[in-house]
Design a binder for these strands. Structure first.
Lengths: 156, 156
DNA sequence: ACCACAGCGTGCGCCGCGCACGCAAATCTG
DNA sequence: CAGATTTGCGTGCGCGGCGCACGCTGTGGT
């Protein structure tokens, strides 16, 4: 069945995921950004930048990890000075993860690098083609079949 | 920068990768297919189905793993009766990984399930929209910024 | 005031991976 | 043809990340 788009998408995703498993996001994406930040800690940074200060437990399902995993990664970022732990003003036992100024700078750099690599790879596409693809991919990811089991619908 | 497609794609990929890290491909994708097959061994099956019998070392860069990792996964599949090791007729020290009939059936089932889930998720898209997206995604994966460091160009 | 409960961080065990070693076969060299 | 080097495979070892379960502290209800 050659013209079955589902198979084609599945195949492409398979290759993509295998690659990103190893060369996680991009070779040397986090070079020169200090010790704490790597492919593992980046999702924490990105999540915090997207949603503002949050607790580790609240961040966990979004990253697809246990709370303990987020705690460890956040600790690494804390030691690197990119994340700060603040007591939740509403709940003294909860501690909020907050990006420091250096953390915000770092995530900005990472985002810029990522977008740059992607735009460069798509430089020979038609601009409207790229725009369409971006919207479709976003839609596919949001409504597609890859939703985690215990994930809220993103409306916050 | 709202209309920068690079950022939008990067964001979507980030969410996708985080999700697929945990709920690897699809919840319950490998249910009822026996003990040996899971999200880890699937790439081996898929790779063998795509390229025919190959050695573990030859398969490794495509999966993004060390040879030893492929060996272990293949061993698991072998124990489950989905993969058979055959001595390479041209080289007695090399052993080729070959899908058994059950292995082929299994990978067919998996492919069908994956394509089914994807098509279902995209059921409210225009058919030509889906086709365009599939081609673009394939193009993006093949020529995009996520190539592994030591990977051939796919032309075989 | 007491008591179940919620939230966090951490020790423990598991699992997968990369590295390096040993063995067997092939290829090279004289 | 014989010895030496290279190639390819599988496996033992150590490392690192993860999930689970525990203990501790604070919260809310009765």
């Amino acid at each position: 069945m050659e013209n079955d788009a589902g198979h084609e998408i599945a195949e492409a995703l398979g290759v993509l995921l295998k690659r990103t498993t190893r060369a996680r996001l991009y070779q040397g994406l986090t070079d020169g950004l200090g010790e704490g930040v790597d492919e593992l800690t980046y999702p924490v940074l990105s999540g915090l930048a997207r949603s503002g200060p949050r607790s580790a437990a609240e961040l966990a399902p979004e990253i697809g990890l246990d709370r303990s995993g987020v705690t460890r990664r956040a600790t690494r970022l804390e030691e690197a000075g990119l994340v700060r732990r603040e007591p939740d003003p509403d709940d003294a036992r909860a501690s909020l993860l907050v990006l420091t100024s250096r953390g915000e700078e770092t995530v900005d750099v990472l985002r810029e690098r990522l977008a740059g690599h992607i735009n460069a790879a798509l430089s020979d596409w038609e601009p409207q083609e790229v725009a369409v693809f971006a919207r479709q991919l976003r839609e596919f990811v949001m409504r597609g079949p890859f939703r985690a089991a215990d994930e809220d619908d993103g409306t916050r």
